[in-house]
Write a protein that binds this DNA or RNA. Structure first.
Length: 282
DNA sequence: CGCTGACCCTGACGGC
DNA sequence: TGCCGTCAGGGTCAGC
């Protein structure tokens, strides 16, 4: 279930598979997703080449000449790319897009989402009018990219001054930093030795330097490992991500801390499970 | 601004 | 085997 690394892995694989291919057909299940499917805009794209596939926040962006199709995977979404024409839709398949290469080869993108918290949104290039696409997609996608150049300890330090919110919830706020969800927030805070309930504004610059490095490190590791999988995340080639095996605190309450051996604790912050070591996170 | 709870859904899992 | 409660990694919104 997707956080930034899963979305990045998905976007990269689709980029490899169907960039430059033209949209041939679109099928939708008709089941309600988070937003109404932009049928009208997509119907205009038949025969139009897909220029590229990227990621902003937790959105997969499919770029067409006239704009972007922004796909959110929600809690349980995945985008699979199959060779050949669309196979019969399975339960919880909601969007199926066939693409055709210049040499008439066909590949199919299948959007599968049991919980239907995901969405497809159309962002017209004209309407964007130079506005950064994250801002258009909502406050939750407007924050800084944690893998970007400008994200570093100084940025975290400066933007956290005066904030009394617990660091974990502040990190997970998409209007501050995008893509750091529950798992990676827990893991990065563990690596940096910072207690999740410490107020964001009370953390020193050196500790933020460390945290910024750890966040980047953890996200990059997860991307290399093909994404995390607690339950059912799978990448576009159908393989399961492996990062889940590397979680050091997430989902490990009661087990010994890999650093000091004390039992990992679980608490609820902002209605989300939080895992940490009370001994070595301060 | 910040915090809380409710809500959108289905599936997996543990206890009985 | 089956029923039931609980939980799940995301995000938005209303209300205080």
């Amino acid at each position: 279930m997707p956080e930034l690394p899963e979305v990045e892995v998905t976007a990269r694989a689709l980029q490899q598979a169907i960039t430059g291919w033209s949209l041939r057909s679109v099928w939708v299940s008709g089941k309600k997703l988070r937003h109404p499917f932009p049928r009208g805009a997509i119907d205009q794209l038949r025969g139009v080449p897909l220029m590229g596939i990227g990621r902003r926040a937790k959105y997969v962006l499919m770029e067409f000449p006239s704009g972007y199709l922004a796909v959110h995977l929600g809690m349980s979404g995945s985008m699979l790319c199959a060779h050949g024409k669309a196979p019969p839709a399975k339960l919880h398949d909601h969007v199926v897009m066939e693409f055709e290469s210049p040499s008439s080869e066909v590949r199919t993108m299948i959007y599968h989402d049991p919980r239907r918290f995901g969405s497809f949104q159309w962002c017209d290039r004209q309407a964007l009018h130079g506005t950064e696409i994250g801002a258009v997609l909502g406050a939750g996608a407007a924050g800084i990219e944690p893998l970007g150049q400008s994200f570093n300890g100084a940025w975290l330090f400066e933007h956290s001054r005066g904030r009394r919110t617990p660091i974990k919830q502040w990190l997970m706020d998409g209007s501050v930093v995008v893509g750091v969800g529950n798992i990676y927030a827990c893991e990065a805070l563990f690596d940096a030795g910072i207690h999740p309930s410490r107020k964001a504004g009370s953390i020193s610059r050196p500790r933020y330097e460390r945290l910024a490095v750890d966040i980047k490190k953890i996200l990059l590791q997860a991307i290399e490992g093909g994404g995390s999988t607690i339950q059912n995340f799978q990448g576009p080639d159908g393989t399961a991500g492996r990062y889940g095996q590397l979680h050091r605190v997430y989902g490990r309450s009661g087990q010994p801390c890999p650093r000091c051996g004390r039992a990992i604790r679980r608490s609820i912050m902002g209605q989300r499970s939080t895992f940490f070591c009370h001994g070595c996170q301060r």
